[in-house]
Design a protein around this nucleic acid. Structure first.
Lengths: 194, 194
DNA sequence: AGTACTAGCGACATTAATGTTGCAAGTGTC
DNA sequence: GACACTTGCAACATTAATGTCGCTAGTACT
């Protein structure tokens, strides 16, 4: 009764890669709403045996590290795709936001882990952070952000808004609408114009 | 060499209560930067033996529940003290924010736990939520919040900003300045005025 | 002084997760 | 059809945290 990916089956390289993917995605889904979830639960969600996970990842930590790295790469790509260094600041801000929301909706757990052991992950996050700061600087120079605003605080608020927005994506899923909501809130707040 | 609270010592009721307090506060401190920290570490941080914690709280879960309840009560008190139903909306918003920041800086872990098992905690959080919504409604009626803003989103942004602001309190500790920064950002955003 | 109460300490039982290994089985490629 | 490859399954060993007990000891209230 074996199915592809079931017991046996010559695991082609592409098959194996697909299994790894399935494990990573299942881990994300499971750990998102219970960070202490067991390997057993992850395996169950991935539709594989627990031992299969251990064959692919030497330890639980290694699994999470792999997720973190993968998510960081996606994150990086999403930001770059928004052309934060070349497009007009506000346009880039919108594009970057929409892209990041898309990625983060699927990899929220892996992206929200502070301080990874893998230096590569650290490097990526630092680079993204720098890109974000440059974008904000350009936005301020263009007069889109008030000159008296602390840019570090601004970035933290931006990250926080994205994080908050991500929590409602499973519901409606319209990342574009969410992106404009985030950008609008970031720039104008919720108060009446002076 | 026994000290008050050391080995032995007739634990007066006030002594026992003080010990419980110490445990709760240590647990908050330890769990804040490692939610999976062991009971051993918590005991160590509290300066008591691990068994002492188990005498006071039947299980790890019970300890966390107690923290959660305590924090929720503090939270509730902080919000009420801001007179969100009677003061002018913007004044109340500032007061509530400052009070909540003060509490949350000390009980960030216990307050950030979603869905407690204790129904009392749920009730308190629901009540605070309702108070917040009423305040925002009053603010909108007073013209302080734009009429086209989704108040549910507004509340989520408010919570997110408070959460973010809390993360820098250990550094400078000036909750009043932080509160005005939060309220300002919430109302005006970071963009240039139209 | 006597008593009541509680904390520390050490030892133990229990449970649960993690990680490892050997074997059978199945599928695609050659 | 033989081979290569990987998975599922079951049965381990290991480790670590949790929770329990009995004992000792010290302090404060009476």
């Amino acid at each position: 009764m074996a199915v592809p990916g079931g017991p046996g089956g010559r695991a082609l390289r592409s098959d194996a890669e697909r299994t790894v993917r399935r494990i990573l995605e299942a881990a994300e889904r499971v750990l998102r709403d219970d960070p202490t979830a067991t390997m057993e639960r992850i395996a169950e969600a991935a539709g594989v045996a627990r031992t299969t996970i251990h064959r692919r990842f030497t330890s639980r930590e290694a699994l999470i590290d792999a997720m973190t790295l993968w998510a960081a790469q996606q994150f990086d790509a999403a930001v770059r795709a928004g052309r934060p260094d070349t497009l007009p600041p506000l346009v880039a801000l919108y594009q970057v936001t929409a892209n990041v929301l898309r990625v983060k909706s699927g990899w929220g757990f892996a992206m929200s882990r502070p301080g990874s052991a893998d230096p590569e992950v650290e490097r990526i996050h630092a680079r993204v952070l720098a890109e974000c700061d440059r974008l904000f600087l350009r936005a301020r120079d263009a007069g889109d952000i008030r000159a008296d605003v602390d840019l570090v605080w601004a970035r933290r608020v931006y990250y926080a808004l994205i994080h908050e927005a991500t929590r409602s994506i499973p519901a409606d899923g319209d990342t574009d609408a969410l992106a404009s909501r985030v950008v609008d809130t970031l720039l104008r707040g919720i108060g009446s114009a002076t």
